[in-house]
Amino acid sequence: MSSRINRRHLLIGVSAIGAGLAAPAIAQTGGLRRNASSFTMPDWRDHFDDLGVATLISDTTSRAVHYWSGDGADYRIYPTSVPMSDELTKRGYTEIVRKKVGPDWTPTQSQRERFGWEYMPPGPDNPLGTHAMYLGWPAYLIHGTHDTRKIGRPSSDGCIGLYNHQIEELFGICPVGTQVRVI
């Protein structure tokens, strides 16, 4: 075996060193996290004793909602928007208590004070999109959005948002009583 370094070996070596140096630099970008690097695949058994009528796990770190049917035969995953800050994020166990097609929206007192927002009837400007599933926590929903730029980002005031066509699908397969965990 020759100990000579040819151009190919030099390029491979420099590339490897460059990749090794870039990783710590990326890690030190002020805590910026990319969705792909923070994605996890939760197992419902780590959160619930059984699947109930259906199960949702909303993972705010990987910005995804995971769905399992009550019999475990159907598993789906949806990209989501998440709350803008930890202070706005409610975590824990709840369930879907009500569902509505064409929801209207009434901002919370805090939203009215901070942004001057007012009541919004159903329609294309409504921030709840085309479908909403209300959780057992007041003012927390899983809903659609007409603003597709919000999906995959921390952009909500506490709710979990999905693309309208995906909330419509999820709405159709999640009965009232679906157990939900926000992590």
Rank of each mutant, 00 (worst) to 15 (best):
R33Y: 11
P175W: 03
S37G: 10
E87G: 09
S85N: 09
R91E: 00
N164P: 08
T80P: 00
D157L: 14
V180A: 05
R114V: 10
W117Q: 03
S38V: 12
A36P: 04
Y67P: 02
T106K: 14
V176C: 11
A36D: 04
P127Y: 07
G129Y: 05
W44V: 06
T61P: 02
E113S: 06
G52F: 06
D74Y: 09
Y75D: 09
I77R: 01
N126I: 13
T55N: 04
I151M: 10
N164W: 01
P107L: 07
Y93L: 11
V180R: 04
L21R: 04
P24F: 06
D71A: 11
G161H: 15
R7V: 08
K100G: 05
H131T: 07
E95M: 04
W68M: 13
S3T: 15
S81K: 13
D147W: 05
P127K: 04
D125G: 06
V65S: 00
A23W: 15
T148N: 14
P107W: 14
G123I: 07
I57A: 00
P175Y: 04
G136E: 03
I173E: 09
H66W: 06
Y140N: 11
P107Q: 12
A16V: 14
T89Q: 10
G129M: 09
V53K: 02
T29Q: 13
H66R: 01
P107T: 13
S81L: 13
D74P: 05
H131V: 05
Y67A: 08
R33K: 11
K99P: 11
I151Y: 05
P121L: 06
E168H: 07
H146D: 09
W137L: 02
S81E: 12
T178P: 00
T29L: 13
N126V: 14
R181K: 01
T145V: 06
K150V: 08
V82Y: 01
F171Q: 02
S38M: 15
H131A: 02
G116A: 04
